[in-house]
């Protein structure tokens, strides 16, 4: 039995400026013991999906079964078995970390003494022991996020929802959060997480579903998605515009696949599988050929690249906002966009 299965999930919000189809026939499946990353830009419908699956929101059409239970009919029974960490850390700022955990544990129907014990365990697990008796108002963003995640884990849920767990965190807190999530995953948790970063989905998820306008527009492993986008690329900016063609030939000799040249920015871009080693080889070859380099780097595909290749529009802009093909400087793998 899959941990999550949905079919045709639809949620329409009415607003003064017409209706918004936050979910527009979303089909999803998540197997027990695996991690699904929902990847999509702001407004794609990620939070709405999580809220429906976590019994906070009733879908207007379609259905969802989570852990074999219907999210509408069996909501209360389901709440015992899931944990939710929402997009904004939902902890009580006026309570201490320990009090927060104790309160949520009590509301998970644990007796007071068990709740105390569980709060202590979680503070320990999430590296919050020292801050445990300070009010959460004084916590940093990363600490709040960890406390929020700890709160979601109180009932030892069989399935965990994490809505944008690292959005707004500084790079260090993000890495720390990834570590925490990886530990959960290695302990066998089933997890649905949402993110705006391909890198994050790549790092944490077994499979990725790309969401746009309330639908899954692509799904697969990170490698499969990257293969669709074109994977990693070497990008070279040549100092002398006259050497651009020569640089292209050098790069073509080392990389295979479609090589694109943008003359106005003196840039050559080529797909690669060789990683940093390949980068070094390209630099050497260019140097040997006496071609001056202004800039060179390995470029990993981003959510934006995924979006460009899948939808033809950038993740930040809807096609309506952007009548023309956006940003011709962004390398677009040939043959992907119609």
């Amino acid at each position: 039995m899959p941990a999550i299965i949905t079919e045709g999930l639809t949620k329409v919000y009415g607003s003064s400026s017409g209706e918004v189809r936050a979910l527009d026939g979303l089909d999803l499946q998540l197997e027990q013991g695996t991690v699904l990353g929902l990847l999509g830009p702001n407004g794609a419908g990620k939070t709405t999906t999580v809220r429906v699956l976590a019994t906070l929101l009733r879908p207007d059409a379609g259905w969802a079964r989570v852990l074999g239970l219907d999210v509408v009919r069996d909501a209360q029974a389901l709440r015992h078995r899931i944990g939710l960490s929402g997009q904004y850390a939902a902890v009580d700022e006026n309570l201490t970390g320990r009090e927060n955990l104790w309160m949520f544990a009590r509301l998970y129907q644990m007796p007071s003494s068990t709740a105390h014990q569980r709060a202590g365990e979680l503070l320990e697990q999430f590296d919050l022991v020292e801050a445990g008796d300070r009010v959460a108002k004084t916590y940093s963003g990363g600490m709040r996020r960890r406390l929020d995640l700890a709160s979601a884990l109180i009932g030892r849920p069989e399935l965990l929802f994490l809505d944008e767990p690292t959005t707004g965190l500084d790079p260090r807190s993000r890495l720390q959060m990834w570590q925490v999530i990886r530990e959960l995953v290695s302990a066998g948790s089933t997890l649905l997480l949402t993110t705006q970063y391909l890198e994050e989905a790549d790092e944490l998820a077994d499979t990725i579903g790309v969401v746009d306008h309330g639908r899954i527009i692509a799904s697969g492993t990170a490698d499969q998605l990257k293969a669709q986008v074109g994977g990693e690329r070497v990008e070279v900016v040549v100092r002398d515009p006259d050497r651009l063609a020569a640089a292209r030939d050098v790069v073509a000799g080392l990389c295979d696949g479609e090589i694109s040249v943008q003359e106005h920015v003196r840039r050559v871009t080529a797909p690669t599988r060789g990683g940093a080693g390949q980068l070094v080889r390209v630099i050497r070859a260019l140097d040997d050929a006496g071609i001056g380099i202004d800039d060179i780097g390995l470029r990993r595909p981003t959510l934006d690249d995924v979006f460009l290749s899948l939808t033809g529009h950038s993740a930040q802009q809807t096609p309506d906002d952007e009548p023309d093909e956006p940003d011709t400087e962004t390398p677009i793998p040939a043959g992907r966009n119609a």
Binding site: L56, R79, G86, A90, V91, D92, E93, L107, Y108, G155
Partner: peptide, 17 residues
């Protein structure tokens, strides 16, 4: 606004509490 109500609603607590 702070999402506390959402958290409460996702818990197996009495709805009226």
């Amino acid at each position: 606004a702070k999402g506390i109500v959402d958290r409460f609603r996702s818990l197996p607590m009495a709805r009226s509490a």
